[in-house]
Simulated scan of single mutants.
Amino acid sequence: MNVTEYIESGILESYVMGAVSDQERREVQCLSSIYPEIKAELDQLSEAFEQYALAYSVEPPVSIKTKLLNELDFNEQSEETVVRPLPVDRPFISSFRATWIVAASVGLFLLLFSLFLLSELRTNQKTLASMRESNTKLQGDIQELREEQSQNDQMLALLRQPGTRTIALRGNEKAPDGNMLVFWNRQTHEVAIQVQSLPTLPPDKQYQLWSLVGGKPVDAGVFDPTNGNQLLQRLNRSITQADAFAVTVEKRGGSPSPTLTTLLAMTPVNS
């Protein structure tokens, strides 16, 4: 049972004001004996109702006491007690009763209005908490976008540098739909890649880029087929020379030499 939803349903307020059916009354009594949260909320509402009843109660006029004392005869005229009927001032009683009804109505209205304000306060507190959570998430998203923008700016700066070459690698029969671009700058020796389409790998595998110099492979860095929202991935290797670039599938973290059976693509630099 969701205790919070039950408390916020409003049935406890109706119970305190006596506006529930017998079945609902038994239900509230049973649940309040099982769940301390419901019992505490019920006690709090009962106390609030009592405080409002006391705060807005109307004391009878002082003149009533004087009128009653004047009507009573406390002087003993004989040994027998004379019982006299108490005169009933019907207009006064009707007026007094109407005053009580008005006062009770005002008190009940104020109580209901206070319960309404309490409910609205709880709703506003939940809304505020939700807005704070959304704001925190938004701040995190903004920070992430700023970091991605900074990385993309660095990549664009690399592409704009003189001497940057773009090499298109296309998959062989093992990855017929595989396509990616390699960006290599002969002067700064930086390497970046843009994956357009490559098969997804198991968690323990990664793609590894190789530069071929005089027929010998040189590790150019490992990468994953996707890297979040980043268009380009900068590899952490410095490549001074390259006759061609190739891609293989290796264990996560890379391999010191390529596994030729997993060769997916190879393209000469001057092609």
Rank of each mutant, 00 (worst) to 15 (best):
N2I: 07
N2G: 05
N2M: 04
V3C: 03
V3A: 07
E8H: 08
G10I: 03
I11F: 12
E13G: 10
S14Y: 06
Y15D: 04
Y15R: 04
M17W: 03
A19N: 14
V20W: 06
D22L: 14
E24Y: 02
R26N: 12
Q29V: 13
Q29Y: 00
L31H: 06
S32I: 01
S33I: 02
P36S: 09
P36M: 05
I38D: 00
E41P: 02
Q44S: 14
L45C: 09
S46Y: 05
S46D: 11
E47P: 03
A48S: 11
A53K: 05
L54C: 06
L54W: 03
A55E: 09
A55G: 07
E59M: 07
E59N: 04
E59P: 02
V62W: 01
K65A: 13
K65H: 12
T66Y: 07
L69G: 02
L69E: 15
N70I: 02
D73W: 02
N75A: 10
Q77D: 10
S78D: 07
E80I: 13
V82Q: 15
P87T: 10
P87D: 08
R90H: 07
P91F: 09
P91L: 10
F92Q: 15
I93F: 09
R97L: 15
R97D: 15
I101L: 14
A103M: 06
A104S: 09
V106D: 10
F109A: 08
L110E: 07
F113D: 14
S114Q: 15
L115R: 13
L118P: 01
S119M: 05
S119G: 07
E120Q: 14
R122G: 15
Q125A: 11
Q125C: 06
Q125S: 10
K126H: 12
T127F: 11
T127K: 14
S130Y: 05
S130L: 13
M131K: 14
R132D: 13
N135H: 13
Q139Y: 08
G140T: 11
D141M: 10
Q143D: 10
R146M: 13
R146Q: 15
E147C: 03
N152Q: 15
D153W: 12
D153V: 02
Q154W: 05
M155C: 09
A157K: 05
Q161E: 13
Q161F: 00
P162D: 08
I167A: 01
A168T: 12
R170Y: 05
N179M: 04
M180V: 03
L181A: 04
F183L: 12
W184I: 08
H189V: 01
E190I: 04
E190S: 10
A192N: 05
I193F: 01
Q194V: 06
S197P: 01
L201S: 09
P202H: 11
P203C: 01
Y207P: 00
Y207Q: 01
L209V: 01
P217Y: 14
P217G: 11
A220P: 06
A220V: 06
V222I: 08
V222Y: 00
N227F: 05
G228E: 07
G228K: 08
N229R: 11
Q233F: 03
Q233V: 14
T240D: 13
Q241H: 04
A244P: 01
F245L: 07
T248H: 08
R252N: 04
G253D: 07
G254H: 00
T259E: 10
T259C: 04
A265H: 03
A265W: 00
T267Y: 03
P268Y: 05
P268N: 11
